[in-house]
């Protein structure tokens, strides 16, 4: 197996007396979709926020390209090329697609905005992701469907030559056809060599696009397995009970509970 693009080793995190993450190891490989699954409260969001640099770690290492890096705030992480697409998308309805994709990082020509460069680059990025569902890059985001918004949010993350994209529940609010679009896009991102992390509750989505599955159970990694080695049933057991046959947390899960 190739070297992980991003790796967390032995990460612990507590909020006051609540020990949320116990010695979590997590790896993201280039060109692969890693699904992060777990029940509510398993620590998925906390782990994502640690990767994004929003939360600090109590202990543990953050490795990028095999090298330990000091990633302690969102800016450090963004500089590494890690982009997070949050569930609530963070798009401005009153701006158009180009304006949203470049928000906060506008191209400038002297004092004025360089609309020509921005529109061309936005267009190239969307085209390179084979996004065919958007009528014009100058239409306002308010006029887009849920799937298209998700597409724009993902394209915004890809625009900056990012190496890793974390997607937090990208299909949670989408219909069937739009889920299809987004999953296709997720697959294309990985095919371009990016490391993709997909946080999802939907086993169908996970089995469709993920290469690896990391299951969290009460703040511990229950399993980190290639998708082809496990069944739907096993993953559900890992999520709900922390173990499934030979897989999962060996000891009594009670000790893991907070």
């Amino acid at each position: 197996m190739t070297q992980p693009l991003l790796e967390l080793r032995g990460v612990n995190k507590s909020f006051g007396v609540v020990h949320v993450l116990h010695d979590v190891d997590f790896a993201v490989y280039p060109g692969q979709v890693t699904a992060l699954v777990g029940d509510n409260g398993a620590g998925k969001s906390t782990l994502v926020k640690i990767i994004a640099g929003i939360y600090g770690r109590d202990s543990g290492d953050y490795l990028f390209d095999g090298e330990p890096v000091a990633a302690h705030n969102p800016k450090d992480v963004a500089d590494l090329g890690v982009e997070v697409v949050y569930q609530d998308l963070a798009l401005c309805d009153n701006l158009d697609i180009v304006e949203n994709m470049f928000l906060g990082r506008e191209a400038k020509k002297g004092l004025a905005l360089d609309e020509v460069t921005m529109e061309s680059r936005a267009r190239e990025t969307l085209a390179s992701l084979s996004v065919r569902t958007v009528k014009s890059v100058r239409q306002s985001v308010a006029s887009l469907s849920g799937g298209q918004r998700q597409t724009v949010a993902i394209a915004k993350a890809v625009l900056w030559n990012s190496k890793i994209v974390l997607l937090d529940e990208p299909t949670a609010a989408l219909g069937v056809a739009q889920t299809r679009q987004v999953l296709d896009l997720v697959r294309r991102l990985a095919d371009r060599g990016l490391g993709v992390v997909l946080i999802s509750h939907n086993m169908g989505d996970v089995f469709e696009v993920a290469d690896r599955i990391t299951a969290l159970y009460l703040g511990r990694v229950a399993a980190d397995v290639p998708t082809k080695d496990v069944t739907h049933q096993q993953v559900v057991e890992l999520i709900t009970a922390g173990r499934s046959g030979s897989l999962g947390i060996a000891e009594n899960p009670e000790t893991a509970a907070v």
Partner: peptide, 10 residues
């Protein structure tokens, strides 16, 4: 405009 449209996104 961004702050007026979605302050959190901004």
């Amino acid at each position: 405009y961004a702050v007026g449209g979605n302050a959190e996104a901004a």
